[in-house]
Nucleic acid binder design. Structure first.
Lengths: 215, 215
DNA sequence: CCAAAAGTGTTAGTGATACACCCATGT
DNA sequence: ACATGGGTGTATCACTAACACTTTTGG
C-alpha cells in the first residue's frame, strides 16, 4: 500500500476501544509514525486485506498496532466522504469495543509509534475524521450500555456492585442512585455472587459478583 | 466498470426504500438486467463514483434505476464480507428510506429491467446478500418509527389519524390501540389539524392532519 | 468510638396498557 | 333505521425516580 491511486477506493477498518482507568473513560489511540497526520493521534486501524472480512481486518490491525486481542467488536456505520483522507478515496468501517483496562498490555508497532489510553474528555487533536467517528461510537456505547449487557466486557471477571456502578456512571457521565441501580440488576438476573469479598480500606468488605453466561 | 480486478475494493451504495401500498409494506426492488444475478431482484444501488459522497451515490443510483428522487436517506452499517459479490471485493453501504407510495412514478433503466414495489412478506429470492441488508433495515425502521418522527416520510402531505395508525401497524406488524395511539400523538404535539376532512364511504368524515415542521 | 463504604425498602410519579360507547355520515 | 368507521376518557399496571439509615470493617 505504498502508493495511492486517485481513481480507486480503499477500505480501512478502525477500532474504537473504550476502557475505564483511574475512574476515567479512556480510549485507545495510537500516534501515527507515518504521513498523513504523522505525529497526530488516531484510532487504531488500517487497510483491510482483499481476502479478509471487515471485522477480521479491524481485529488484525488492532492487535498489530496495540497488542490488544480477543476482543468483541460491534460494527458501526461507515464513514466515506470524499476528502476525508488526503491520500485518496478511503472508506472506513469503524468497530466499537470495550475492554477491562487491567487486562491489556499495550505495545507499539511499525505504523504506530505508541498505543496509549487517552482520557475521552481531554483528547488531543485527532487525525482524519476520527473525532466524529469517536463521538458516534460514544453515542452507541451509551445506548448499548443501557439496553444490553455489553458492560460485562469492560469489567474484570469479578467485581463489586459499586465498581460496576462506577463504570456505568463514567460511561454515561452522570450519577446513578445506588439502591435503584442494585434493584435493577437484581431484576435483570444477570449477575451471580462469587465466593469471595473485596476488602479495600477501613470499611465493610464488598461482595464479589460475576456475569452469568449467555444471552 | 466493465471489468473487475480481484485485487481491489469496490464500493457500492444501495437504497432500502419502504412504502405502504394496498395496506401492505412494500419495498422497492429492481430486476437485474446484467450479471451477476441477472434476472434476480435486488435493491436499487450501484457503484459509488470516486468523487461523490456515499449518500450522493445512493441517491444517484436510486434515481437512475427507479426515478425516485428527493428522498431522505439514513445510513446503515456496511456489508463487506469476502465473497458477497462474485465479481470481486465489494463493500456496500446501505441506506434506509421511506416514501409515500402515491408520489412515485417508477421507471426502468439500462441496468435495471424494472423497478417494482414488492410485498415484504412475499419476497422473491434476492441477489447478493440483499435479504440480510433488508432485514437489518427493517429492524432499524421499526426502531426509528417508535423513537423518531420518520413516519412522516411515508405519509402524504395530509392524512387522517386512522391512516397514520394503519402505517404504524403495517410497519410494526401488530395492532395498536386507537385511543392510546391518538393520546400519544397529542402529547407529542407533532401534528396540526388541516382545514379539510376526508370522506370515504358511508360514515362520519375524518379530520385531516399534517406534520408540523422542524426537529 | 470514629470514619468510610456496603448494603437494604418504600413511596410517589410518570408513562403504558386495557377497555366501550356515542357521533356523523350515506344508503 | 342501520351500517360504517370517526372520535373520545378513565382506571390499572409497570417502571422510574427520589430518598436515609444500619452494617461491617480498620484504625
Amino acid at each position: 500500500m505504498a502508493e495511492f491511486r486517485k481513481d480507486r477506493f480503499y477500505v480501512t477498518a478502525d477500532a474504537v476501544v473504550f476502557t475505564i482507568l483511574n475512574k476515567e473513560l479512556k480510549i485507545l489511540l495510537i500516534k501515527r509514525k507515518i504521513p498523513p497526520f504523522k505525529g497526530k493521534f488516531a484510532l487504531p486501524g488500517g487497510f483491510v486485506h482483499i481476502n479478509e472480512n471487515l471485522e477480521h481486518g479491524a481485529k488484525r490491525e488492532l492487535e498489530e498496532e496495540t497488542g490488544v486481542k480477543n476482543i468483541l467488536l460491534k460494527k458501526l456505520h461507515a464513514f466515506g466522504n470524499v476528502g476525508r483522507d488526503p491520500r485518496g478515496r478511503v472508506v472506513t468501517i469503524p468497530f466499537l469495543a470495550l475492554i477491562a483496562g487491567e487486562k491489556v498490555k499495550l505495545h507499539a508497532s511499525t505504523d504506530a509509534e505508541l498505543a496509549k489510553w487517552q482520557s475521552f474528555y481531554r483528547l488531543p487533536e485527532l487525525a482524519f475524521d476520527h473525532k466524529k467517528i469517536l463521538d458516534n461510537a460514544l453515542s452507541h456505547l451509551r445506548f448499548e450500555i443501557q439496553n444490553t449487557n455489553i458492560a460485562f466486557q469492560i469489567m474484570p471477571a469479578e467485581f463489586t456492585l459499586t465498581e460496576l456502578q462506577n463504570a456505568y456512571e463514567i460511561i454515561l457521565d452522570k450519577k446513578l442512585d445506588k439502591r435503584n441501580f442494585r434493584k435493577k440488576l437484581k431484576e435483570l438476573n444477570i449477575l451471580k455472587k462469587m465466593p469471595g469479598t473485596k476488602m479495600e480500606g477501613a470499611h465493610r468488605p464488598a461482595q464479589l459478583y460475576s456475569f452469568k453466561k449467555a444471552k
